[in-house]
């Protein structure tokens, strides 16, 4: 128990803004993929089926995570004809956080900590 607390404290030693973003928005690996995808392709508007294909993920899992990201304000869900499509929010603050998160993800130490928090959040 004590050891777990110590690990938790070490893993929580990251930029508070990024830690909050990680805990509230990037709380699954599929979401991480989707946030990275939209961060790198900020002008994409597409259906869950196509986004799942781009991300190389299962459609149903992707659909649920896209809906959650939209509910959290990271993405915008809209309707185009009979299709439900997703695009990146135009909110500059969230876009800035996404870019910060993606840049931080290039660092192995940060990735290890981020993975720890996602796994803990999944328990």
């Amino acid at each position: 128990m004590e050891r777990e607390d110590l690990v938790g404290r070490v893993m929580a030693d990251m930029d508070p803004e990024l830690l909050a973003f990680l805990r509230t928005r990037v709380n699954s690996f599929v979401k991480w993929d989707l946030i990275r995808f939209f961060g790198e392709n900020p002008h994409t508007t597409d259906t869950a089926e196509n986004i799942a294909r781009y991300a190389g993920r299962n459609v149903e899992a992707t659909r649920a995570e896209l809906a959650e990201l939209a509910a959290q304000g990271v993405l915008v869900e809209s309707h185009l004809g009979e299709m439900t499509v997703y695009s990146l929010t135009s909110n500059p603050e969230i876009r800035r956080l996404i870019q910060r998160f993606l840049e931080a993800s290039n660092d192995r130490q940060f990735r290890v900590k981020a993975i720890y928090h996602i796994i803990r959040g999944m328990r």
Partner: peptide
């Protein structure tokens, strides 16, 4: 310049 990644079905309806 804008590079948009999308699909034919979405682009057509859009």
């Amino acid at each position: 310049l804008r590079i948009i990644m999308s699909s034919p079905e979405v682009s057509l309806v859009d």
